[in-house]
Simulated scan of single mutants.
Amino acid sequence: MSYNALYTDLSGYYDLMCADIDYQGQSSSAHRLHQIFGNSGKQHLDLACGTGPHIAHLIQHGFHSQGLDINQPMLEIAQQRCPEAQFAQGNMCAFQTDQKFDLITCFLYSIHYSGSIEELIGCIKSAHQALQSGGVFYFNVVDKNHINNELFAKHSVSQGADLFQFSSAWHYIGEGEKQTLNVRIDKTCDQQTLTWEDAHPMVALDFEQLKTLLTPYFEVHVFEHNYEQITPWQQASGNAIFVCTKA
C-alpha cells in the first residue's frame, strides 16, 4: 500500500496515531518564537496541516489561520475541527498565494515530506514568497547524520473495543538525499489483529546543508528540540527547531 493510500484509508485514525503529541506545547512554542523573531501580525498558514490540531491551538493565540495539505480526507476533518479557519488542498513544495502571512508553520517533521532537495528548495521559495516582511517560517527537522535506525517511537491507545498500537522509526542508509519514515499500525479487536505497514519517502539532509539552502531567503535561527524552553542548538542533538525570518 502506498503512503498516500495509507493516510487516505486511515485518516479517521490519524488523531489516535498522534495521541501522544503535545500539540498545545508545540503551538505555544511557535507563538513565542514568532513574538521574538517575527512581526506582530496574526496571519498564519500551516503546511501539511493534517487534521488541524495545531491550527486549533494557534487560533486560541489570536491567529487567523489557514491550512494546506495534500490529503483531502485530512482537510475535511480539519475543517470540522476548526470551522473558523480556511483549508486548501495543495503541494507545500509548489504553492502560490496572493495573501501574505506573518507565520508559516510545518510541524511534526513534515518538512521532510518534500522528498528531495529540489522539492525542498521549492518549499522554501514558496514559503518565502508567501511571507510578509518580518514573517517567520517555523518547522522542526532531523539531521540525517544522527539517525539511529534501531530506535522506534511507540504508543498504544484504545477506541471503543479496538486497541491500536502505533510505531514509527526513521531509516537512513548512510548516503544520499533519501530516507524513510517507517510506520506500523496494529489494530486488535476480538483477539484478531490487522496490521498496516508503510515506508514514507522523505528527504534526507544535515543541518549545515539546510542552513545553506535557507540563508539566501531568511535569517536562520536554530534551537534545541525543546518546546518548553528556548535554547540555542548546541550542535550535538539530531533534532532541532528552525526559525527563519524573512528580511
Rank of each mutant, 00 (worst) to 15 (best):
I104K: 06
N39E: 13
Y138A: 05
H44L: 06
M17S: 14
D190H: 05
G115F: 00
G38I: 02
C82M: 05
F242K: 04
S28R: 13
I121R: 13
E208P: 08
D9N: 11
P232Y: 04
N239C: 05
S156N: 14
S167P: 13
S133M: 12
G122L: 06
G238Y: 03
Q86N: 10
C123M: 12
Q209C: 09
R81I: 10
F242W: 07
E119V: 07
S27A: 15
G115Q: 04
D46R: 04
Y138T: 07
L33T: 00
I70L: 08
L33P: 00
A94L: 02
A85W: 09
Y109E: 01
L120I: 06
Q89K: 15
Y3V: 07
K211P: 02
E119S: 12
F218L: 10
I173V: 07
A204Q: 00
F152T: 14
S126T: 10
I117C: 11
D46N: 06
L120M: 11
C18M: 15
C123G: 08
A130M: 05
G50C: 10
I21T: 09
Y227L: 03
S133A: 14
I104E: 07
I36P: 05
S114K: 01
H31P: 02
G90M: 11
G52T: 05
I104V: 10
F223D: 03
L214N: 02
Q235Y: 15
A199H: 05
F207M: 05
I173F: 11
H128Y: 09
A127S: 06
L75Y: 11
D15A: 14
V141A: 11
S126N: 07
L68S: 02
L45K: 03
N39C: 13
A204S: 00
Q60R: 13
V222Q: 07
H128R: 07
L210R: 04
R32L: 01
Q86S: 13
F242G: 05
L214V: 04
L213E: 11
Y138L: 07
V243R: 00
V157K: 04
F164L: 15
Q179G: 01
P73D: 11
L210S: 04
D69L: 01
D98P: 06
Y7K: 03
K42S: 13
M202T: 08
C123L: 15
R81L: 03
E76D: 15
S116K: 05
L214C: 08
C82N: 06
A236W: 07
G25C: 11
N91I: 08
P232T: 01
F87K: 04
F107W: 03
L151M: 13
K211T: 12
P83N: 03
H54A: 07
Y217D: 09
D22R: 10
H221V: 10
S158H: 12
C123P: 08
C189A: 14
I111N: 00
H61K: 14
E76Q: 14
E175D: 09
H61E: 12
F218E: 08
T245H: 13
A19I: 14
E118L: 14
N226T: 08
D98Y: 06
